[in-house]
Structures are given as structure tokens and as C-alpha cells.
Design a protein around this nucleic acid. Structure first.
Lengths: 380, 380
DNA sequence: GCTCGTAATGTTTACGTAAACATGCGCTGG
DNA sequence: CCAGCGCATGTTTACGTAAACATTACGAGC
């Protein structure tokens, strides 16, 4: 009879499968240890006022039963989840990933878990969807890693009490923002090339709708202007190595182009390939500098001089910022900039004309020493 | 008197800051809508048995109050969190990241959130730590993206009822595993080079303690053996482009080395640089094939022929596997292999001797058509 | 006209935890 | 010698939700 009724058995099985996870509760531990559940709670949370002997008994009972605090009950009681939500576009760019990783690590150190909210495609609908899902999600605060303009137009309001910090973006008066010092990095890149004697610097920019790309391009233009150099027409890419390659084919035709600042390392990679294919030697004929310092860039042909971004620091500051805001109902919005640093490898060299007509392959001239204000990292 | 006591005021403020997140509860909605909270619950969960008119009123009240279900209470009541935990080493490899992304996307589609559990360094202590933190975490199931041997030695037992699926690893009899068909991919890579006429194929392997590296190396060896080729000494790297470069400097000395299978694209990148620096032309003198098909590999010098891994599929299968196991108390362990595919670009070519002494740069010979069983993707 | 079934809604209860408050006990000081 | 204090521990309660059970109301069938 016990197994006769197929239907009810199936229901029973489903029930059993759905609910065996709840192992022991505080009450169970309390019973074994011969104390009240409140004492178990005190031990569990490391509160004072528990006799050492009692504490040992409770801990023993916990071990025996394999007790794990139920985080749902805990969250319900405390009113907080100890969880941070991270909204990000598909983890396509290295920068986002490294930032995310730093966020996760830093959050763990602060006793917070991290919940991922991927946005498949960067459309307004998707972003709105992510924000409304957020409402039901067990998160105390949110870190957004994305270009802000989509966020601005988001029609869904955040749940009350949920703090937000935005990484890698702009608009510091509306949200708290942590970002790499895009402008500073771009300025250093352009100055580095100018200091090497190049008359001007071409720019292979990122896509128009990216704030980061915009700010790098603006800094490029203004640094050239400050130096009295004539800005060449801007060349547009889309961050991908492939787009860098296509742009590079065009740049290779420009005989007066001796120095290029690529807005990221991937595009620089494609650029290097195009220049190589067209017989323009790097750095002898053309100097190339990138941005990001992805791990592979040290192995490009030639190893890429680039602007290093400290994504780990960005992530860390995001977490500390958002936790800080939670602690003291922070409402002040502002922007924190994380400095970059120039990593000098072998894709940049003095302007060709200066080095005379002979093909002097004196390698010491490759690493120029003079003219740089902040001491750059050479190789690594 | 109300504001006289500074201390109590401070406490009050802290309380207010710590607990305003709980907006409206079901009871609040119920009061506004003039129904019981149970009816609100029914509407909230889309259950039947609610009059259409009543439902509209409740929904209106929800909107008015900005009601959001409290996921902690919900989880406590239901006994499940609708959350998946993902344990992974620092997101250093592209494969892990892409897998993670696919997991997050797929989980969202199934109504699950994803919580990240980063393990800073791959030591036993760290892994144990992650697993014990897991116990307190609000997760129903876990996906582990890591080499399993550390998992094997993990002393911390998983909370009961928490299902596990392992990605990118081995040991299918102990856990449910989803992995790329490492062996198949490696076999295709080696066969591709043999079919091009190379006498044998060198292998630039990943680190010894990686199962993926082991399996690729084993498949390399056995494929050579099947073909009656003599396996050259194995060259060891550590996945990084830098290690590929160092290995490449050594390989460049081997005049009989005409074909190299690198265990990942990063090492292939370093290898290309070393060969270039030592004047060994790719693919004219040496053919190089990679593994992974990272986005940049199409822009290497030359564009890299490689084995494409479908990380998205791996992630998707992980999620579906783990959810399936939860649904029907699955205990059967097994391994699901995701097939790879050969992406033919320009870093592989027929063996030099076959092409005669003259430096014939006929490009049509670069893309060999014959001899491959599975139709490879050419370029992309 | 009464019972019965069904649809719509309400009431009670329990999930596991932890704050708030209550109890008991031993010791100190006047 | 006992008021009073402080420590260790116990009891009550509430967090928001949803299952289980209870209660209406109304119409069909006899």
C-alpha cells in the first residue's frame, strides 16, 4: 500500500527532494547541547556573555549535527542580506572582468557575497529589466559596471535603501562613481609620444557611444593642442582587434603618420598586424601605444608600450564606497579617479627622421630616458 | 527631551539607516487593497482562484506602495533561494570567464540568480574556505569551475541537499562534470598538422597540475602514436604568453621543429613572438596551432589557426545539469563533453620541404584543402 | 427548501533567527 | 544580612511569506 498510489508517491518524492536541504536548526543544536536556542545564536554570532564551557558544548553539538546557519532566516531577521549586486554587460571586456574580480574579492573580505546580474545586450529594455529584477533580488547595494547613459534613461527606480556605485563611467553628480583616470592616462600616452619627438599623434579611438572612449579622445585632442601640435583626423574603431586591423590598413597609407595612440590594447594588436603586413616597422617607422595593459600585451610583436589601468583598485574602491554609503546613509555623490601608469615596452621609439637615414639598430636608443615627468615603468 | 539624549539619538539614526530598505510588506498592500495578505500572496505568485477585479485592486495597491517581495522571507518560507553559487579561481583565464558569463545568462533565464565565490589562490586552504563559506551562503546548488584535484582533497563536506556540477575538469564518477572535449580538440589539432605533411608535431603544454593540460598532452601523444610519428620531447609552459615566449626561444633552436601545437592561444602568442624574433617564419618555416580561440587570436601575426571551445555551451549545460539534478534528486554522475571545432587561419601550412627550396610565396598554398575529416572553419 | 459543491477569500501557523526582555544565581558592600 | 549588581542563560516575540486549513457566498440538483 505504501508504494501503491503512484501519484501521491511522486508528490512525496518531490517534496522530499525540494526540502531536505534544511539540515539542523538552532533548535536542534540547542536540544543536543542542552541549552536554549538563544545561546546557540550567541555562540553562532560570536557574542560575549557565554560561559566558555557552554560555548564548547554548543560548538560540539554544531559539529555533530553539521549545523549551518540559515541565511534566509538570518537575512529576514536582520533586514540585510550581506550581498552586493553587480550589474554588468556581457563580460566581454577585460577591464570589466578584472573589476568584477576585484569586487568579488574585496566583497568577500568585508563579509559580503556578490550576485551577478548580467545584461545580455546593452539596450534600454535589458537594463530596465535588470533593474526591476533587482527589486526582488536579495541585495543590499548595487555596483553598476557600464556606460552610464543607459542608466540615466532607466525608467525603473531602484528599491529604496539600495545604494548604488557606478564603475567605469561618468556623471558623478548623479551617482557615486569610481573610475580610472581616463583623461590622465590618455594625456600621458600622448605626451610620451610627443616627448619622443613625434610632430603629432594619431588616435585610434573607441566607439562613439562609449564615455571612456570619448574621454580618452578628448584628452588626446587637448594634449595635442596644449603642445601646439596639429591633430590628425580621428580614426574610429570598436575596441576589437579586428577593427584595429582595419583602421591600421588605412593608417599604414599615411606616410606622415609616425605615432599612434590606440584607445585599447586589443585595437593596438590589430594595428600592429596591419602595420606589419604593410611593411611599416614598429617602432622604427611608427610608434604605437595602447591603453589597458592586458596581460598579453607584453607578448605582442613588439611588446606593447601601454597605459596600465588598476582595475583591482577600481573594484576595491567600489566595494568600500558602497559599503561606506550603506553604513552612514551616504547621499553625497562624487567621482573617485584611480591613477594610471605608463608601462614602457618596445612599441614606441623616437621619431624616425631624428634618428638619421642610416638604419642604425642601436638598441639603446629604443628606450629613451629623457623628457618624461612621471617615472614610467620600463618593461615589467 | 526627545533629542536630548545624544546616545539614544545616534542609536535611532543607525537603526533607521540599517532598516529602511524594507519597503511595503504584503500586509501593507493587503490593507490598501482591502483584502487579506494571503490574497496578496496569491496575486504575487500568479496563483489561480482570485477574482479578476480583486487582482486588479491588489496590483494597483502594489504599484502604489512600490511593493517588492522580500526574498529573504520568501526563501525562508519556500526553503529554496533560487540562487546558484559559482566557485572559481581568480577569473584569470578567458575560458573561465566565458563559462561564467554563460552560466549567469542561462541561470537568469531559469529564474536563478548567480552568486560568485572567488577563490583568490588555488590552495587547499582557500578551497576549503570557500566551501565552508558556502555552507552559510544562500545557494541551492553549486557550479565549480576549477581543476578537480583540489576539490578531491577538500576536507569540508558540502551542505546536504546542495547539488554540484563541475565544469572544465575531470573525475566524472565522483561529480557531474561538463567539459570541453579536450582530447578530441587536441587530436584534431595534431591531425591537422600531420595532414599538412609534417613528420611530427611538438607540443607546448600547460602546467603539469592542470587536468586540461594533461588531457591535451595525452591526446597529442596518442594521436602521434596512432599516426606512427615520433613524439618530440614535451615542452612545458604555464598558460601565460610569457611562458610561451620562453618556450618559443628554445623551440626556435630546434631546426627539425616544423609544427607546434600550443595548449592555449596565449602561449601560442608568446611562441609566435619568439619564432619571429629568431627569424623562423610562421607558417613558412614553422606551423603553429593554438587552443581556445580567444577573440584576439584572429589578429595575431599571423592570424592563429586554433581549436575553438564553446564555453557558452559548457556554461549552459552546467546550469541545466544542476537544475535538473535539483528537480529530480539526481545522483547519477557522468561527464558531458562539448565538442570543439578547428578554426583554420594562417599560422599553419604544409611542411617546408614539400614546398621546395624556392621561397614561393604563393598564398593559395597557405590554405590547404585536403585531408581533413571534419570540415574545418576557414577564417571566420 | 435543503444539501452539496465550488469559487473566492480569510485565518492560523510555521519557517529559523536574533533582538528585547526576563530570570536566576552568586557575590559585594554597607 | 540583605539590597543590589552583573553575569549566564532562558523566554517571548517579530521579521515577511505561503502552505494548510477555515469560512463564506452562491448556484445547481434533488
Amino acid at each position: 500500500m505504501g508504494t501503491a498510489d503512484g501519484d501521491s508517491t511522486a508528490v512525496g518524492a518531490r517534496k522530499r527532494a525540494a526540502r531536505p536541504r534544511q539540515g539542523a536548526s538552532m533548535a536542534d543544536v540547542a536540544r543536543i547541547a542542552g541549552v536554549s536556542s538563544q545561546t546557540v545564536s550567541r555562540v553562532s554570532n560570536g557574542f560575549p556573555g557565554v560561559n566558555e564551557e557552554t560555548r564548547r558544548q554548543v560548538l560540539a553539538a554544531m559539529r555533530e549535527l553539521g549545523y549551518r546557519p540559515n541565511s534566509a532566516a538570518r537575512a529576514l531577521r536582520r533586514g540585510e542580506f550581506r550581498t552586493l549586486g553587480v550589474i554588468t554587460f556581457s563580460l566581454s571586456t577585460m577591464g570589466n572582468i578584472r573589476t568584477l574580480e576585484a569586487i568579488a574579492t574585496s566583497a568577500a573580505q568585508h563579509g559580503y557575497a556578490v550576485t551577478l546580474l548580467p545584461v545580455a545586450v546593452p539596450t534600454q529594455d535589458e537594463v530596465n529589466g535588470a533593474f526591476s529584477r533587482l527589486g526582488e533580488l536579495a541585495v543590499d547595494a548595487v555596483i553598476v559596471i557600464m556606460e552610464i547613459h543607459l542608466l540615466d534613461a532607466a525608467t525603473v527606480s531602484l528599491p529604496p535603501g539600495v545604494q548604488v556605485v557606478v564603475a567605469d563611467s561618468d556623471a558623478g553628480d548623479r551617482y557615486t562613481v569610481v573610475d580610472t583616470d581616463q583623461a590622465g592616462g590618455a594625456r600621458d600616452a600622448v605626451r610620451h609620444l610627443l616627448d619622443l619627438g613625434h610632430d603629432t599623434v594619431w588616435h585610434l579611438a573607441g566607439p562613439e557611444d562609449s564615455f571612456a572612449a570619448q574621454r580618452r579622445a578628448n584628452a588626446w585632442r587637448s594634449t595635442l593642442a596644449e603642445a601646439g601640435a596639429v591633430p590628425p583626423p580621428l580614426v574610429r574603431g570598436d575596441w576589437s582587434a579586428e577593427s584595429g586591423y582595419r583602421a591600421g590598413l588605412r593608417l599604414a597609407e599615411q606616410q606622415d603618420c609616425t605615432a599612434v595612440f590606440a584607445a585599447n590594447d586589443q585595437m593596438a594588436l590589430g594595428l600592429l598586424r596591419a602595420l606589419h603586413e604593410r611593411g611599416r616597422k614598429v617602432p622604427d617607422d611608427v610608434s604605437v601605444i595602447g591603453f589597458d595593459d592586458i596581460p598579453e600585451s607584453a607578448s605582442f610583436l613588439p611588446p606593447l608600450t601601454t597605459i596600465h589601468q588598476d582595475f583591482a583598485e577600481v573594484g576595491r574602491l567600489c566595494v568600500e564606497g558602497v559599503i561606506g554609503k550603506m553604513r552612514q546613509d551616504g547621499t553625497a555623490h562624487g567621482t573617485t579617479l584611480v591613477p594610471t601608469r605608463l608601462v614602457q615596452r618596445r612599441s614606441t621609439a623616437p621619431r624616425p627622421e631624428r634618428r638619421g637615414g642610416q638604419d642604425l639598430s642601436d638598441s639603446s636608443v629604443v628606450g629613451p630616458e629623457g623628457g618624461l615627468q612621471p617615472p614610467p615603468v620600463v618593461e615589467r
